[in-house]
């Protein structure tokens, strides 16, 4: 059974001219775990992965597999499998021939082609030209290519992008199986909800910088409890909540949204002030909004809000 190598990104910076696409990024993806590399489009995920795989040069810092650069690995295809895009196939070549070219170049056994085609469920489509494949089929072919050398470590860029619901379920189960076999899996996504059921660890990147790295559970710790509450006499309710230490977020219209107190605290404050409530609902701050807040909290220093003159123009 292939075992994974840790992936270590160490103070990695990649500049294109004056723009730092990746800015002093450090994190580790561990064997036996699925690490989600998350961030909005353009945050620097793909650039980081391309440097890791030797396709682009780092400006400074390193990205290695257990201390060894991809190109310096013995037999890299047997150690690391990667799928960086669903858009790297010649449309006139069959899926099987695409794998055959890679299998020969990487010096792998020919029977691996049938094995990986079967594993990703592409045996029947393998002899058709890639030009006729759906996005989901191209994703599966890319995954098959990554698995050709039966590697212990997998690097997958947006593997879930464009899959239909059945495909998403399939790949979740598939990646969990691979991780359970002891492999290191690093996968990127721009949508947390796509991968929140798959990943163990998360690394969140925004504008080239890491804004959070840790277990998925730590991300939920960043959630803020809020309560929606309403009463016939809203202003009296708002005063009672403020007196009890709560902060009212929307005092102008509609039901109140309170932070700083949980539902129990809000209920007690209303009871103490003898205000009958018409509504009391704890609001769950889901992971997606934590993720959005993390990735937008660090505004680009060069960006500035449009002035009224620019808006008018």
């Amino acid at each position: 059974m292939p075992t994974g190598t840790p992936i270590t990104i160490d103070h990695l910076t990649k500049r294109y001219g004056a723009v730092a696409a990746v800015d002093d990024v450090s994190f580790t993806a561990h064997p036996g775990r699925v690490t989600g590399f998350l961030g909005p489009n353009g945050a620097g995920k793909t650039t980081t992965l391309r440097v890791l795989l030797g396709l682009a040069r780092a400006t400074s810092g390193t990205a290695t597999f257990g201390g060894t650069a991809y190109a310096a690995l013995d037999d890299p295809a047997r150690r690391v499998g990667a799928s960086l895009s669903s858009d790297v196939f010649h449309p006139g070549r069959s899926g099987r021939d695409h794998l055959r070219v890679l299998q020969l170049a990487a010096g792998l056994e020919r029977d691996r082609i049938d094995a990986v085609l079967q594993r990703v469920g592409m045996t029947d489509a393998a002899d058709r030209r890639v030009g006729g494949y759906s996005l989901g089929m191209r994703q599966r072919l890319g995954l098959a290519a990554a698995l050709l050398g039966d590697p212990g470590t997998l690097v997958l860029d947006e593997p879930i992008n464009g899959l239909d619901p059945a495909g998403i379920t399939w790949i979740r189960v598939f990646l969990r199986e691979l991780a359970a076999e002891g492999r290191t899996i690093l996968l990127s996504s721009h949508v947390l909800s796509e991968v929140s059921q798959t990943v163990d660890d998360v690394v969140v990147i925004a504008r080239g910088r890491i804004v959070m790295a840790g277990a998925l559970a730590e991300l939920s710790a960043g959630a803020v409890a809020r309560v929606r509450v309403d009463a016939a006499d809203r202003s009296a309710l708002a005063s009672a909540i403020a007196a009890a230490g709560g902060v009212v977020e929307t005092p102008t219209a509609g039901p109140l949204v309170v932070t700083g107190l949980d539902a129990d605290g809000v209920g007690r404050a209303a009871l103490a002030a003898a205000i009958p409530l018409t509504l009391l609902t704890p609001l769950s701050d889901d992971l997606e909004s934590v993720f959005l807040r993390l990735t937008s909290e660090h505004p680009d220093p060069d960006a500035r809000p449009a002035s009224s003159a620019e808006v008018a123009a």
Partner: peptide
């Protein structure tokens, strides 16, 4: 140019990261 047109240089250099070997082949 086909390698650039269809972006197949990525899998090519993943399968064989030693670029001079790819070139000579």
């Amino acid at each position: 140019t086909s390698e650039y047109r269809w972006r197949t240089l990525t899998p090519t250099f993943l399968a064989q990261p030693r670029r001079p070997v790819v070139l000579v082949g």
